[in-house]
Design a protein around this nucleic acid. Structure first.
Length: 605
RNA sequence: GGCCCCGUGGUGUAGCGGUUUAACAUACUGGCCUGUCAAGCCAGAGAUCGCCGGUUCAAAUCCGGUCGGGGUCGCCA
């Protein structure tokens, strides 16, 4: 027996018991006589006292100990003398009177503090020594939380009759959407496997296979540029069900997520039930399909009022089919000139041409509720009449002391920049309750998206999404108008899940492929297996795929995805611990029939 | 590929043209110390300031390039 109990579990009930514990030296306090060791294992920390009266050898071993050495200690649990109880520690009422210490392993001085995670360490260093980083409470807690969530999901779905089924990691490249990671085939020179971007087609094939309720904690691979919330391999809860409609899936996810939060993260608040808004509503009210609903600041369309002014910006925007939108920042009139400038700069960086601001000053010269010219401080006030300014503030529902911000431009950039500005202001004015998880469903996405660059229709979600029944006749003659049985789960401005009801009918699926401009050969090459399967009694089915990493980010208050992944990659796709990707032996390449381009040439490209 | 921010002892920061032999905290090494818990006190070692080039009498400090990290736009069905 290596140990009889774990450090964090010892309490007053164990007084006078002899225990053997093992762990890492978290901290050492050497008083010359008494030596205190805080010993840490995965369950917690306990104080060990090394008393010189218990033997010279024991004491000199105690003196030699250093942080992060691994030791096994046998001793007696005793109550701490009065006045020395540490209320900050879970085990602060007791300590271990050491009788024997065995050094199991020594440690070099670690490259960063293990026993203090208040100091932010350079992330590259943390990743290079990830095994040490994981010893720190923040990472350990994130990984524990992750385990709990995944276990909860497995139990929950399993109880409801879902089967967890693994799908291959080596599949075929279906060049569309994200860039595939490729794996060369040894047995078939010149041919490649691809790592799945998601098990999409496989889970639909499982439905044709009669599984009816499938899930998987699935790894998904996409060779695209990374962000704070994106990794080249991320984990999805992949779900697919047969004989269900959209409501069944939304209800399932809503209930699952409410239970995860309520049972595992009771300090978090949620909106119950989850608000549902259509894509159209979300875009018009928040300028995005993944709104942060922890605060209001909803967008207002000023195009109508703007059309009645002589302001050049407004006129030219409207002439070019653009829009004028904005929102009211409560109390924003007191923001400094410098602050306003930085918000303007931010908005421009998100694609806007500029930012119009109208502050409604609460001045002493005008005590009445009626506003006069002196109440308006704005970069456009000299181009507008008092009546127009009052109309705008009425439309914006703005009071004295508030600030109205506006952007004029194309629908796309106006919404995008205002949405980003809304999030920024929400954060900076602390409008969002940090313990709130504002889950919401966004539904009724368009089926197709016009790709201006390539002058063709793209699938908004993916090509297997089913259009709503009432739009099925317009698929070919008015693709842009077609609304899909497609839905997202969003939370605090993050997209957490995406799903749809799929086409189980071969003819309908073919029509959609036609609109997307696929030739029969392309359909056969990329989707042949799925399209064929639809011909053999495919049941009505649909599903959803929530991102596990992003959910964990929100649940653990992490601000990037790497903090909830044990061994993540940097923004450039590097693993600093393994130094991957790395070169391979010529023999390995030979077996794969691969010849590298000249290294000089590789560098230049 | 574009834009923005960052790079100074092991770690986290300060210094932002000239008494700086680059400062502080902490970690580290040694000594003292029997009730600490971020133990304390004393002493010591440790960075040519990511790299290259330029401006200057003088560069950690200014400029250009480059490498690395982060954020973001493009991209991510």
């Amino acid at each position: 027996m290596f140990r009889s109990i774990e450090c964090g579990e010892i309490n007053l009930q164990h007084i006078n018991e002899s225990v053997t514990i093992a762990g890492w030296v978290h901290r050492r306090r050497d008083h010359g006589g008494l030596i205190f060791i805080d010993l840490r294992d995965s369950k917690g920390i306990v104080q060990v006292v090394i008393n010189p009266e218990n033997g010279t050898n024991l004491h000199s071993t105690g003196e030699s100990l250093r942080n992060e050495w691994v030791v096994q200690i046998t001793g007696t649990v005793q109550a701490r003398p009065s006045g020395t109880i540490n209320p900050e520690m879970v085990t602060g009422e007791i300590e271990i009177d050491a009788k024997n210490i065995t050094i199991l392993n020594q440690s070099e001085t670690t490259p960063f503090y293990i026993n203090d995670d208040k100091i932010e360490i350079d992330e590259l260093l943390r990743l290079k020594y990830r095994y040490l980083d994981i010893r720190r409470p923040k990472m350990k807690n994130a990984l524990k939380a992750r385990h709990k969530v995944v276990k909860f999901i497995r139990d929950y779905l399993s109880d409801q009759g879902f089967l967890e089924i693994e799908t291959p990691i080596l599949i075929k490249s279906t060049p569309e959407g994200a860039r595939d990671y490729l794996v060369p085939s040894r047995l078939y020179p010149g041919n490649f496997y691809a790592l799945p971007q998601s098990p999409q087609q496989l889970k639909q094939l499982l439905m044709v296979g009669g599984i009816e309720k499938y899930f998987q904690i699935a790894r998904c691979f996409r060779d695209e540029d990374l962000r704070a919330d994106r990794q080249p391999e991320h984990t999805q809860l992949d779900i697919e069900m047969s004989f269900i409609d959209q409501e069944d899936i939304l209800n399932l996810i809503e209930d699952l997520y409410i239970n995860i939060v309520e049972q595992l993260f009771p300090n978090k608040n949620i909106l119950n039930p989850f608000p549902r808004l259509t894509y159209e509503e979300s875009m018009s009210k928040y300028g995005t399909d993944k709104p942060d609903l922890r605060f209001d600041l909803s967008l207002i369309d000023f195009s109508e009022i703007a059309s009645k002014t002589e302001l050049k910006v407004f006129k030219s925007t409207l002439e070019q089919n653009g829009i004028i939108k904005g929102f009211t920042v409560p109390g924003g009139a007191s923001l400094s000139r410098k602050k306003i400038d930085s918000l303007t700069e931010f908005t421009i960086s998100k694609g806007a041409k500029g930012l119009i601001t109208i502050a409604i000053i609460d001045n002493e010269t005008n005590n009445s509720t009626d506003l006069e010219m002196s109440n308006f401080k704005s970069n456009i006030s000299k181009f507008l009449t008092l009546e127009q300014l009052v109309n705008i503030s009425n439309r914006a529902n703005a009071q004295k002391g508030d600030l109205i911000v506006m952007v004029a431009g194309t629908k796309k950039t106006t919404n995008a920049s205002l949405s980003a500005l809304r999030n920024k202001i929400g954060t900076e004015l602390s409008l969002a309750d940090p313990n709130m998880l504002a889950f919401a469903f966004v539904v009724d996405f368009p089926l197709f998206d016009f790709n201006e660059d390539e002058n063709r229709w793209d699938a908004t979600h993916h090509p297997f999404t089913m259009p709503k029944e009432e739009f099925q006749d317009s698929i070919e003659n008015d693709p842009g108008s077609v609304i899909a049985n497609c839905y997202d789960l969003v939370c605090n401005g993050e997209e957490l899940a995406s799903g749809s009801i799929r086409n189980h009918n071969f003819e309908l699926q073919s029509k959609i492929f036609n609109v997307l401009g696929y030739s029969d050969d392309q359909i056969d090459l990329r989707f042949g297996q799925l399209v064929n399967a639809l011909k053999y009694g495919a049941p009505p089915h649909g599903g959803i795929a929530p991102g596990i990493d992003r959910l964990l980010m929100l649940l653990t208050d992490s601000n990037n995805i790497r903090d909830v992944i044990a061994f993540p990659k940097t923004q450039n796709g590097i693993d600093p611990l393994f130094e991957s990707p790395g070169p391979v032996d010529t023999e390995q390449l030979d077996e794969l029939n691969i010849i590298l381009k000249d290294t000089q040439e590789l560098k230049e490209n």
